[in-house]
Design a protein around this nucleic acid. Structure first.
Ligand SMILES: NC(=O)c1ccc[n+]([C@@H]2O[C@H](COP(=O)([O-])OP(=O)(O)OC[C@H]3O[C@@H](n4cnc5c(N)ncnc54)[C@H](O)[C@@H]3O)[C@@H](O)[C@H]2O)c1
Ligand SMILES: NC(=O)c1ccc[n+]([C@@H]2O[C@H](COP(=O)([O-])OP(=O)(O)OC[C@H]3O[C@@H](n4cnc5c(N)ncnc54)[C@H](O)[C@@H]3O)[C@@H](O)[C@H]2O)c1
Lengths: 228, 228
DNA sequence: TCGTGTTTGTGATAACGCTCACAAGCTCGT
DNA sequence: ACGAGCTTGTGAGCGTTATCACAAACACGA
């Protein structure tokens, strides 16, 4: 079990456990946590928590639970967050500025170390303590600052181009905020954050339950009519 | 097949097809599209496209493909996007302001129709053509404007409270940008957008490939040593 | 030392999702 | 009318993920 590769679904939950544990460590004085409690805080099933954690190793104690600090360290290590990952942000518009000045990243092991844009209105301005550079400097700066992560917050029609620049510069991990599909070589990992898609998924389920409610209402009326 | 419930995984991809089709309709003059072509644009497998679309009905023509306009309409309808969904945004900070002034939502069937905050510094100010109101007015405004979707962009420690206000006001769909788990009744649908989690997942895979590279390097050196 | 109560770690199994492969069905040219 | 060439729609098989259920392991008090 120990040396099996960690399932993707588990990897996606480790950050949630990490956050729940950090929260616990700060607010409660508890030194240990049961899978039950961690599951409650993370909003998942307790068996899932145990199975997920078992992929990292047998870090729990039966009858007791998991040592909070030790588990924190293990998850941090597994996620590769013992070091700081320098990231570059391209596209310093409304969203880009919010990201650039966001303090939450550094608490979680990330540091936005360079900003890029192409517009003369933006290049040279300062945001979140960094001066915006021209996209043409990307490759150079990536090499200098050892940047590992690229973040795209340009309009969608520029996303593919920016992604290719990142790939060319040797960046292997890309987070894309633009609502467009970007194609990259198989050794590059792209994840997307798409607000509109999330809203559309909500819309689907919302509409579905409303449709059911409407149908039920219609039924009720028909029933009343039939009886009246 | 037709009346089976649509799998979650399919629902999550419908918005991507929708976008790809809109893009096609605008840029190319093609009236039809094959599953192959749509798959390429959406960045998925062609068989997956066909199976996904088959849940909506048999809207394709064998030997030809799918009628772009008709498919656009069907997906739009299925996602409930034939109507505009009014949304309320709570927490008008850096991220909230970017969201409030984002033009992309209205193109996709959403309209942010009210902004809320609790800070005196923010309440009463204007962003994206809307005046920020106090959170205490939430329930009233939700009823008046028939608001269906709640968006949370407050700090994480306020997210649960805001979610409960939304639930109390009758909102059944919530999008949460705060990095915290919110608990709601089972008839309420919460989705989260969490940038740090996405970065942490990237970190995991990045670190993994770097670790492999390092191990290979170490091996190479040991081999050289053994031979030298 | 032993029994009781608790909690982990993990096989087993069910549910879900992805991909393949191909028959069914369409268009079009002859 | 018919065959060639495409493309859809979907059953079947397989891999992944979720959940259950329980033996193994620990703490603690008598
Ligand atoms: N603002 C939001 O709340 C929001 C919400 C959801 C999605 N998005 C998406 O995020 C992206 C950015 O949104 P925004 O509101 O910040 O847009 P914006 O127009 O305010 O900013 C875009 C920035 O990208 C720069 N840019 C354009 N082409 C570029 C290129 N090739 N290389 C480098 N920089 C380039 C522009 O100069 C501009 O500064 C968009 O794709 C948008 O759809 C934004
Ligand atoms: N800014 C980013 O780029 C970014 C990135 C990732 C995640 N986030 C998350 O998004 C959320 C908002 O981030 P931000 O940078 O805009 O923060 P911010 O501090 O700039 O803004 C938060 C706003 O919420 C308001 N607020 C606080 N408590 C409230 C309450 N109970 N009800 C209503 N409003 C309340 C504050 O008055 C403030 O205006 C945070 O949870 C943050 O972690 C932000």
């Amino acid at each position: 079990m120990r040396n099996r590769p960690i399932p993707e679904a588990t990897v996606a939950r480790l950050p949630i456990y990490l956050r729940s544990l950090l929260d616990m460590a700060e607010t409660t004085g508890e030194l240990t946590v049961s899978s039950e409690e961690l599951a409650r805080r993370a909003g998942v099933n307790a068996a899932k928590v145990r199975k997920d954690l078992s992929y990292l190793g047998s870090y729990g104690t039966r009858g007791v639970g998991y040592d909070v600090e030790y588990l924190l360290y293990q998850i941090t290590r597994e996620l590769g967050l013992t070091q700081d990952w320098p990231a570059a942000l391209v596209g310093i518009g409304n969203l880009g500025r919010a990201l650039a000045s966001y303090k939450g990243f550094s608490e979680r092991g990330f540091r936005i170390s360079a900003l890029f844009d192409v517009s003369d209105d933006v290049v040279g301005t300062e945001t979140g303590g960094l001066t915006v550079r021209h996209l043409d400097e990307l490759k150079e700066v990536v090499a200098e600052d050892n940047i590992c992560i690229g973040i795209i917050s340009t309009p969608p029609n520029s996303a593919q181009e920016v992604a290719e620049r990142f790939v060319d510069a040797g960046v292997k991990s890309i987070l894309n905020f633009a609502p467009s599909v970007v194609n990259v070589p198989p050794d590059v990992n792209v994840r997307k954050v798409d607000l509109s898609i999330e809203l559309q998924i909500l819309s689907f389920y919302q509409q579905r339950t409303q449709a059911i409610a409407t149908a039920r209402e219609a039924n009720r009326r028909l029933g009343a009519q039939g009886q009246g």
